[in-house]
Structures are given as structure tokens and as C-alpha cells.
Write a protein that binds this DNA or RNA. Structure first.
Lengths: 181, 181
DNA sequence: CTGACTTTTCAATGCCTTCTGAAAGTTCTG
DNA sequence: CAGAACTTTCAGAAGGCATTGAAAAGTCAG
């Protein structure tokens, strides 16, 4: 890592964020770009982003549009410049809430539906072969998965509705700095 | 999807689980194999797994060892058979707790450390150039990220210690079936 | 100890996702 | 409305990751 402390700090934060969002299922470059915009503190144009990240103009364009869709960044019209500029959405908790609502909730919901479908298939098979003990086991375990998936759905739904911070109360005591800033 | 209802049900559940675990950052095949073992309700050998999933013996071996490490499946010695057999761990909540503890907690912890490092770099740069307003903005925002990361760490840590179900109380009312089974 | 059977290892392969580079499309200015 | 500036699109390239296939290692019964 080269450059002055300022540059290195931004690179380090961007790299960290890229890993976090990759872990969370997004392209790493989205995290890098968001960090760049967030820490720049002013609107940047697509080619400034390309320059700082080393990405091609095409890749930057695609990343920007993906992030606009998630409302993770925002367009900022800068007077006197024909280029479009972008700033990072700063309400990180809101971003997380939105993503949970639009992505995780959908995924868990689909899982619930598929487990229900699988269970229905087994119950149907049981009607035809009531004495098959194996089917009893499968049905029982599928019911277990289904219950779990439904509980998960309820949790995610609650998170999406109330926001991540609704989790904090359960922790009893929260580290002092959590309410700073 | 072909075969009788029983077979299709298992395939559907396995596919669903493979997507869930893939989403969660594991290889899809781990989810498929776990489902297979979970729904089989009896110990299966490596080649039975290979047969049902269509994977090669090598891939099955690697998947099995990865799952044994996470304690997601368990070895079961079957008398009279030289092959090793495996069963699925059935305590799904315990599995989740373990994974959160060993993986998510580590990752969030690393993020905290890296944001601290980045902030330290910026503070150092500020000593040299106290009038650089840009550095003030960067430092302030980095502090924001750091606070968030620390709160996240606290949350994940709480989850790992108390288990996922510690989240349920916050939901006020829980769907009736959550405490079934 | 031997040979058969089972599991592990790992280089080569194929697959899938993301990025590049350039052409096409769009928007703005004069 | 012409031309320049900027953005988007997309076919192909690159790279990363999981799987294959076969050889090596390990295990067990007799």
C-alpha cells in the first residue's frame, strides 16, 4: 500500500468495506465505490471513481446503476459540470433495513414456500403408502425445517419493519459508544 | 424434476437448502448433502451421498470434511459395514450459533480493527496538516463507520452467546407455531 | 503381512461471475 | 441541429472457485 496516510486510510477502509459487502453477497466493487464516495465527502463523477479504483468506465457505470437501484448512492447535480456526480447515502442503518426488506425477506419467503411444497408432496405420498415409515420421518423433519423457516421469516420481517437497532434492547447493556454520534 | 413424490420432495428441500447456505456464504453442495442426510433419517455412506447428489467421490469427501469441521454432520459407525457413515446434526439453532460465533464474529472483529487502523492513519495525517479540512471530514465519517462496526460486533457477540432465539422476545407477538415442535 | 476396499489429495478442468474495451446510444451546448 | 461530451451496453477475456478424475494414502479382515 502506497501513498500518504490519507490515501492509505481511504484504501484501507474501502478494502474493508468491499470484504464486508462481498460477504453479504454483493460485488466487492460496490463496497469500494461506496466507501470512496462516503469518505470523499463531496460528489464524485464516474471518471473520478474510475481513476481512484482503477476500474474501467463500463464497470463503474454498471456498479453505479446497481447502487442507485439499491439507493446506496445518490445522484448529485453539480452546477457547471456536465458530468453526473454521485454521493454516498449516509444513512447506513436505513440502507441495511432496505436491503433486508428487499432481499433477505424475499429469499426467506421463497424458502418457506418451497418447504411447504416439499411437505405437501410427502403428505401426498403418505396417502398412497400409509405404512411407509420412512415417509413419516421425512414429513416430520420437513415440518421442523418449515417451522424454522417461518420463525426466520418472522424475524427478518420484524427487522425490516423496525430497523436493525430494534435488536439493541435485547443486549441488556450496550457498549457506551453505541449511542455516540 | 422426476421420480416419485418422496424423491421429488427431498430434491426440492435439498435445492432450497443449497440456496440458503449459498446465500449464507457456503458452498451449495454442503446444503444439499446436509438436507439429504437430515431427511434420510439414517446414516448414509459417502458413496450413497455421491449417488444421490451426482457428485464425484472426491467432492463428497471434501464436502464431508468441511461439514465435520463445522459440526454440521456427524460420523456414525455402522456395525458390519466398513464404510464410514454420516448423519446430519439436527440442532439447527445450535449450528447457526456456532457458525455465527466462529465466522461472523471473526469477520466483524477484523472490520473493527481495520477501521480503527484507518482512523489512526487519518489522525496521524491531521497532526501534520491540521488545517486540511478534508481530513476532518474523513476522520468524522470513519468514526461513524467504526461506531457502527462496534455496535455490529456487540450484536453478533450477543447472538453468538445467547443463540438466535434470544431475538424472539423483541418481536412482541410471535406466530403461534414458533414454539411448536 | 497381504490384498481389497475406502478415503484423501491435488493438478487439471470447466463453470460462473465480473471486468474490459469498444461501439452504440444519449444528452447537452452552442 | 451538429458535434462534443458523457453514459450505457455487450461480446469476449480474465480470474476465481468448485468439481472431476485418478493416483496416493490409509484402513481393515483374514
Amino acid at each position: 500500500m502506497t501513498g500518504d496516510a490519507h490515501t492509505r486510510a481511504i484504501a484501507l477502509a474501502a478494502e474493508t468495506m468491499s470484504e464486508i459487502v462481498a460477504f453479504w453477497g454483493f460485488k466487492p466493487s460496490l463496497g469500494r465505490i461506496w466507501s470512496l464516495l462516503y469518505l470523499a465527502g463531496r460528489p464524485l463523477s464516474a471518471d473520478e471513481i474510475a481513476e481512484h479504483t482503477g476500474m474501467s468506465a463500463g464497470a463503474v457505470s454498471m456498479a453505479i446503476n446497481e447502487m442507485l437501484q439499491w439507493e446506496i448512492i445518490v445522484r448529485a447535480s453539480l452546477p457547471g459540470d456536465r458530468k453526473r456526480h454521485y454521493t454516498a447515502e449516509t444513512d447506513v442503518l436505513g440502507m441495511i433495513r432496505r436491503i433486508i426488506e428487499q432481499r433477505e425477506l424475499r429469499m426467506v419467503g421463497r424458502a418457506v414456500g418451497r418447504f411447504e411444497e416439499a411437505l405437501a408432496l410427502v403428505e401426498q405420498a403418505r396417502l398412497e403408502r400409509p405404512d411407509d415409515h420412512e415417509l413419516v420421518v421425512v414429513a416430520e423433519r420437513l415440518r421442523g425445517l418449515l417451522v424454522l423457516a417461518r420463525v426466520g421469516y418472522g424475524l427478518v420481517d420484524g427487522l425490516a419493519r423496525r430497523g436493525i437497532l430494534s435488536l439493541l434492547p435485547i443486549r441488556g447493556q450496550l457498549a457506551g459508544d453505541a449511542s455516540a454520534k
